[in-house]
Amino acid sequence: MFTNDTLKGRTALITGGGTGIGLEIASAYARLGASVMLVGRNQERAQEAAEGLRRAGGQAAACRCDVRDYDQVTNAVAATLARFGALDILVNNAAGNFVCPSAELSPNGFRTVIDIDLNGTFHGCHAAHPHLKASRHGGSIISIITMRGVTGWPGAIHAACAKGGILSLSRTLAVEWGGDGIRVNTISPGPIADTEGVRRMYIESGKGPSEVGKTALGRWGRKADVANAAVFLASDLADYVTGANLIVDGGRWLKQAAD
């Protein structure tokens, strides 16, 4: 779909990059010529993922980082610059979530998810800003959210509030930082079958058929679908795209609204 040099010469920092969608995005970026820094709370997992990308011929490194800690985020940005010499793309993918009725959710549980998802995204954007501004390619920020942050998410009010906040944050920064040559966009994935969350929440619990039926296309998504969207938004193909929320959910949110 993309040429092998689509992202040649660019450097990306990807939070939550050691597994799942984050690693899929990192793999796609590396195949297309980018250098990638994978950051996550589990250093061993991130390092193993980076080694896998290097064995496949990519340029990759890993750094431990808890996005809730601004100092750790700035250290991760510094490590990226020290290793690769620049920062052109930031992917805010790190997230936390669990199912809990709102009336039973503790303030600490609510705070924890907000801290990882929303505050962590702000930390990344803020720490990366001067370096993205200096990018010779133009900076690109991509944050992974969900349409449940727009429609509401019964059973996950903490994640709904966090993801809705990230959408507003991203659109605000798209305007504020457009003059700095930084594009800021979001991606809203739907049910992605080859992720641990979907397997645990839907497939293993027997809810798979009903969840698939909620999509307009009548099938699960793949991590590669999200990675392809992230490549597009990071590349020159999206040079005039900012403030957008690219929905990659098989028409799920529209079908639910229609039903």
Results as ranks from 00 to 15, higher is better:
Y29H: 15
G213L: 12
E48C: 13
N42Y: 12
V175P: 02
I192F: 05
F2K: 06
A257H: 14
R45V: 15
P209G: 07
A234L: 00
R222C: 04
A78W: 08
G17N: 14
L13F: 00
E48P: 08
L105P: 03
L132M: 05
A238Q: 06
N185R: 01
Q59N: 15
Y240N: 00
G149D: 03
E211R: 10
Q72L: 04
A26C: 11
K8P: 10
R54Q: 14
W177T: 02
G243Y: 00
K207N: 12
L132N: 06
R222V: 06
A82D: 15
G243M: 07
S188F: 04
T195F: 03
E48T: 15
I114S: 04
G179S: 11
C161N: 07
L118C: 02
H126G: 04
D69E: 13
D88N: 13
A12G: 06
I182G: 01
G178S: 10
V150Y: 05
D259W: 08
Y29N: 07
C63Y: 07
A159G: 10
C125H: 00
R171S: 06
D69W: 02
I145G: 14
T3W: 13
I25Q: 00
A46G: 10
T195N: 02
E211N: 07
Q43A: 15
R200G: 08
I192H: 02
L118F: 07
D180Y: 02
P101Q: 10
L217Q: 03
R200S: 14
K255M: 12
D71L: 01
M37V: 15
A95T: 03
T215N: 06
D239F: 12
G218F: 13
C63K: 08
V241A: 15
L53W: 05
P191G: 07
D115C: 13
M1A: 11
A227T: 06
Y29F: 10
S235L: 03
G178C: 12
N92W: 00
A79N: 03
I142V: 15
A46V: 01
A229P: 01
K207T: 04
C125N: 13
